[in-house]
């Protein structure tokens, strides 16, 4: 049964799927990228603290 579902899944129409996708999750992408940069900035902050201290 699982196999049958796979065949009828979203893969059957990849083009439509992709176009829809990239439009609908741009807010998500912006949010996670904010998160990513937050991680990088804080990490660099402590890294430079480590480098600066003896």
């Amino acid at each position: 049964m699982a196999k049958a579902q796979l065949k009828n899944g979203p893969k059957s129409n990849p083009k439509v799927q992709h176009k829809e996708e990239s439009e609908s999750l741009k807010g998500t992408m912006a949010s996670v990228m904010f998160l990513g940069f937050f991680i990088i900035v804080t990490w660099l902050g402590v890294y430079f603290l480590f480098v600066d201290r003896f």
Partner: peptide
């Protein structure tokens, strides 16, 4: 397993950041 295109980009970005961190401290 299907993964959204943007999620792939996000995970590659995240993985790249982690590799840079690890290389720096390594």
């Amino acid at each position: 397993m299907h993964m959204h295109k943007l999620e792939k980009i996000w995970l590659i970005f995240g993985l790249a950041a982690l590799i840079v961190f690890l290389s720096t401290i390594g």
